[in-house]
């Protein structure tokens, strides 16, 4: 590893993505609502009809991404009135293009599912329940895409931090999305005095958080070997792991062992999971932009030993 890299007056060698915090918020909400749709659909199809209130909440939650998601994305364009040009072509080399179509499919079918659920809830006669049951399937598939394509979006750039560990970042985004959905739905279950499926959702969140922590660990190994690592990065990722990973895991565990009396702890765990998920997306975005603006990092990353095999 060439550590004594000379720079050009420390002038940045790359340009950071011109994305504001709005993009990080979108990435978070896309994952939350996409995974909610997926969890709700599985609960509907495999829950034997016992999980109706959970299914309803999941469907409504996925409307968040449907309604706010496109607005956030259009807000972050620098020429927003031309947003429709996104659907002018399809390009498999561009996750921004792939994502535009995932979002479109997700929005249409989630709106259909949520709308039919809403009408059904008002006890209006009609095939509403079945419309929701059918529309939820493509919505759930696209929801899985919504949870992870944003990682591909960041990874498929020249920004060192994002490019250094494409696969593990996607695992991280996906598991964080599932954890957030589990946490949000568990809160809904507990706060509405539901039938007590909170524990199952907690279990889902715990599994997802553990996978996320493991993927975070592996991606950090990539950052170290590829030279996208320093004291600042270590501090950022350690706090993110603690806030969004170890803290909620500890709270979930404590809540579980305390049984019924642990309800508040479980709720706190859910909240910590939700906050941690957003914090992780914000950290990923800002730390990535910082890595692009730092010529030492970008020039060190663009060394032959970091090339994919058979391409050097």
């Amino acid at each position: 590893m060439a550590d004594n890299i000379q720079t050009y007056y420390d002038h940045p060698q790359l340009k950071p993505a011109p994305f504001s915090w709005i993009v990080a918020l979108y990435v978070y909400l896309a994952g939350l609502s996409g995974s909610s749709q997926m969890v709700a659909t599985i609960a509907d199809l495999f829950g034997g009809g016992r999980l109706r209130s959970l299914v309803r909440r999941g469907r409504y939650l996925s409307l968040v991404g449907t309604v706010i998601g496109p607005v956030l994305l259009i807000m972050d364009l620098h020429t927003p009135q031309r947003f429709y040009n996104m659907l002018r072509i399809f390009k498999a080399t561009s996750p921004m293009s792939i994502g535009s179509y995932i979002l479109s499919v997700f929005s249409v079918f989630s709106a259909l599912t949520g709308g039919a659920q809403f009408i059904f809830d008002r006890a209006i006669r009609g095939p509403w329940r079945w419309i929701a049951r059918i529309a939820q399937v493509p919505a759930a598939g696209a929801g899985g895409g919504m949870s992870v394509y944003t990682a591909s979006l960041l990874a498929s750039t020249s920004t060192p931090l994002w490019a250094a560990s494409p696969g593990w970042m996607a695992v991280r985004f996906g598991s964080s999305s599932v954890a957030s959905a589990g946490a949000a739905l568990a809160l809904g279950e507990r706060w509405s005095g539901g039938r007590g499926y909170g524990r199952k959702l907690d279990a889902l969140a715990v599994a997802a958080l553990s996978v996320e922590l493991y993927a975070a660990h592996l991606s950090q190994r990539d950052y170290q070997t590829k030279g996208v690592w320093g004291d600042r990065e270590a501090a950022v990722w350690d706090s993110i792991d603690a806030l969004g990973g170890y803290l909620p895991l500890a709270l979930y565990t404590a809540g579980f062992f305390l049984g019924r009396r642990g309800r508040t702890l479980s709720e706190a765990a859910s909240l910590a999971t939700l906050v941690g998920g957003l914090a992780m997306r914000l950290a990923m975005q800002y730390a990535g932009q910082a890595s692009a603006s730092d010529p030492r990092t970008s020039l060190r990353f663009a060394q032959p030993e970091n090339l994919p095999r058979a391409q050097s």
Partner: peptide, 22 residues
């Protein structure tokens, strides 16, 4: 940069690991 890369190399690896996770 001494060894720049084509960003689109990373589309499929990241997308597929993400979808496998889901």
């Amino acid at each position: 940069p001494r060894a720049p890369t084509r960003a689109s190399n990373r589309v499929m690896p990241s997308l597929l690991s993400g979808l496998a996770t889901m």
